[in-house]
Design a protein around this nucleic acid. Structure first.
Lengths: 189, 189
DNA sequence: TACCTAACGCAAAATATTTGCTTTATGAGC
DNA sequence: GCTCATAAAGCAAATATTTTGCGTTAGGTA
């Protein structure tokens, strides 16, 4: 099953998709992950289970789809004056979200997806944010590392710890990652 | 369901566990992930499905259990003379394993596990290896970063890309991560 | 307006999962 | 060694989920 990006918009498909997503989001607030089932979601969404199976394949992919949508940037990260502080501010907000039970579920739902594309989209999402913050810094004339270096130096350790060792995903460490990553360009040569 | 580490060893439990693990490993070579099922594994292992459900809870946890066992260090990483080259050698081998279809399955099976403990064990496993390589370097009198810095600087970006953006998990990048990580201690202050 | 077709509903069939109860095998105490 | 207590396995019935074939509906297009 391929990831469907654009179902015919505005039509019945779109309504069904929205109803199902909505049903998942509502049920998630009331029930634990293990209590969720496709028939249950289908019933709440006013849809037959086979519709869900045909569209998403299985529960895991559906949950991953919903989580990925939730991840999307509501708005641009706040401006704080420097790349270091932009990274710190955005990162602390992100850590807050992702260390919460809801955030942890989102992360593991996405990781549990068999679709490589889906996981990659998660990567691209963070990449877009890094590119945005970096662009601001460039405009201000700051020396900046490449987007790739930001991904490796800041996003990677943060995500790694969010996934594997939650207790060590802290804003104190975030500061270190940022400092370390920026230091390689601040004093070039 | 908690992770069971030590079932009564040598007894029937151990035999069942081994038979089931074995059955999974054999079936994995012949079938794709989506074709695997608990009843099928149970049959191959000469066991009833309910035994598997009671011991592991579901297919995902069983697969995660098997994958985690496979991850365990067969032997100590080879000595190559310096921390940088030890890291490079071990890392290339690890990348090789984990970029293969089998390795990718292992990773996602482990990530799909709902058990935080299980994922954390994966972290500890890498930490042990980093500690081992670092210890060698210390014995040789090399300046070395902390284990935590090795995790953040080398393991994190490598794992992050293995999970989210496979094509960019390359040994060329590995060299960069190693160089970058070691440079912060090579020329201290 | 009249197709064409993707997506949905429905319901039966196939699978998978859970559960209550029975049986077996192991380890502990004698 | 023998007996007992118990954890884990087997079995089978009851549930629940997932798949599938086929008829229906609603958007899109000519």
């Amino acid at each position: 099953m391929a990831i469907k990006e654009a179902v015919r918009p505005g039509g019945r498909s779109a309504r069904v998709q929205e109803a199902v997503h909505q049903a998942v989001r509502e049920l998630q607030t009331a029930k634990s992950r293990e209590e969720l089932s496709v028939p249950q979601i289908a019933h709440k969404a006013g849809v037959t289970p086979s519709t869900i199976y045909r569209r998403w394949g299985n529960l895991a992919e559906l949950l991953a789809d919903v989580s990925l949508e939730r991840l999307h940037p509501d708005e641009e990260p706040p401006h704080t004056g420097s790349l270091a502080s932009d990274l710190q501010a955005w990162g602390e907000h992100y850590l807050d979200e992702m260390t919460s039970p809801t955030g942890q579920c989102m992360l593991s739902d996405i990781m549990a997806s068999a679709e490589r594309e889906r996981r990659q989209r998660c990567y691209r999402y963070n990449e877009t944010i890094m590119a945005c913050l970096r662009e601001r810094a460039v405009m201000r004339g700051e020396a900046t590392p490449s987007v790739e270096d930001l991904m490796d130096g800041v996003i990677a350790p943060m995500t790694y710890r969010l996934l594997y060792d939650l207790d060590t995903a802290t804003s104190a460490r975030l500061s270190r990652w940022i400092a370390q990553t920026l230091s390689s360009t601040d004093t070039p040569g």
